[in-house]
Design a binder for these strands. Structure first.
Length: 70
DNA sequence: GCGATCTC
DNA sequence: GAGATCGC
């Protein structure tokens, strides 16, 4: 597959918006792996989101298979 | 507590 | 720099 689409299809992640307490589907601004150097601990993938309500950013876990961003 | 990252 | 994120 040939065809590099620059228009990626960002799959929305279901996350709990701490500002509203609502579970919403958002596309992360940034995603990275947060894990200790010490192996044996996998850590978690973290996404940076922005609350649609307040515009305030917050972090939440994203699925391990979610691609990193930026 | 560790890990990276961001906004305040 | 704090604080928040998650699982071990």
């Amino acid at each position: 597959m040939p065809r590099k689409k620059k228009t990626a299809k960002p799959k929305p992640v279901k996350v709990r918006d701490p500002t509203t307490g609502e579970e919403v589907e958002l596309v992360p601004i940034k995603v990275w792996l947060l894990a200790p150097k010490s192996r044996g601990r996998k850590g978690v993938k973290i996404g940076l989101f922005k609350s649609p309500k307040t515009g305030k950013p917050f972090r939440a876990k994203v699925p391990d298979d979610y691609p990193e961003i930026k």
